[in-house]
């Protein structure tokens, strides 16, 4: 078990960053709002990393990533509310279960749809995303507490700097260890050439399923942290536009690059939230005019990523 020893430099860096953040937030040098979006950026990084595993490393294009993020959020909120969880210790198993729940749904839906390729996979994942949205909109029919289209209210606020930061760092290390192992190598083989992968004995459907459910697991954890940061969930937080957010982060950061995803996640949250401060409210809609233009320009100019080129 050399998990910590091998990652000692990253862990040291992480502790330093944590101490700086703790000091900055502790002495209230920055507003509550900045603290909130800082935590949110960790969640975005974690969830985008999940999509990077699925799309960037394994080449399985998904337009429904936000659905798994939403599943994690709703599962955790439901669990913590019905079990009366309000502390970090009690929350840890809930957090884990939400990730597993999202991963399990990803596994089950992946069995049929991962046989599809490229654009057909895109439309199937998009379809799944819409289906989840329909279910969330009608969720009050199953249980009043879920709130349906009115939204899920009154979730305890549990996510704090320590939880968001260290869970994210830990899962980044776990992801890195998988990527730099035979499994990560097989994922990249599958992305490069599925037939050749089968030809050397890689069980491609198993590898795709593994990457897909692991990516969904990360999204589920991200969703659970999100639910307990903002304490309110609405089905519209988990629709196709959200999926496209994550997609843009993966593409900007570079497909198949962990560091790129981290930078891109930070830039993205800073940019989107920064615009909220700079632009007056009525101009905010302009964001979604420029984001698609940026996406199109990116596809023409550097389709493999802005920050890092991935293989």
């Amino acid at each position: 078990m050399k998990f910590f020893w091998e990652a000692r430099k990253v862990i040291l860096l992480a502790v330093l960053i944590y101490l700086v953040l703790k000091a900055v937030f502790g002495f209230q040098l920055l507003s509550q709002y900045i603290e909130q979006i800082t935590l949110f950026s960790f969640i975005v990084i974690l969830t985008s990393l999940g999509l990077n595993v699925i799309y960037g490393y394994t080449g399985q294009f998904s337009l429904g990533h936000a659905a798994f993020y939403g599943i994690g959020a709703y599962v955790s909120a439901y669990l913590s509310k019905s079990l009366g969880v309000d502390g970090i210790l009690g929350f840890m198993p809930v957090l884990f279960l939400s990730g597993v729940g999202a991963g399990l749904v990803g596994y089950l839906i992946g069995i049929p749809i991962l046989r599809l390729r490229d654009d057909f996979l895109a439309i199937a994942t998009l379809g799944f995303g819409t289906l989840v949205r329909v279910i969330l909109d009608n969720s009050d029919r199953f249980s009043e507490v879920l709130g349906g289209s009115r939204g899920f209210v009154g979730i305890p606020r549990i996510t704090n700097l320590e939880l968001a930061f260290f869970v994210t760092v830990f899962l980044i290390l776990v992801t890195r260890n998988i990527i730099f192992s035979r499994f990560g190598l097989f994922w990249r083989c599958v992305k490069n050439d599925e037939l050749a992968s089968q030809g050397i004995g890689i069980n491609t459907s198993r590898m795709k399923l593994m990457a897909f459910s692991y990516g969904c697991f990360l999204a589920g954890i991200g969703g659970a942290l999100y639910a307990h940061l903002y304490t309110f969930l609405h089905p519209s937080n988990f629709d196709i536009l959200k999926s496209i957010d994550f997609l843009i982060i993966v593409i900007v950061g570079g497909m198949g690059s962990i560091v790129g995803t981290i930078y891109a996640g930070l830039i993205w949250v800073g940019f989107i939230e920064g615009l909220r401060i700079v632009l007056p409210a009525e101009m905010l809609d302009l964001r979604w005019v420029f984001i698609p233009l940026f996406l199109i320009a990116l596809m023409m100019w550097r389709p493999y990523g802005l920050i890092r080129k991935g293989g």
Binding site: K2, L185, I202
Partner: peptide
Amino acid sequence: SAVLVRGGYNLLSAVFRS
């Protein structure tokens, strides 16, 4: 990749670097 297809460690060994 071809060498590692034939036999190897499991996922937990990879994650925790056994």
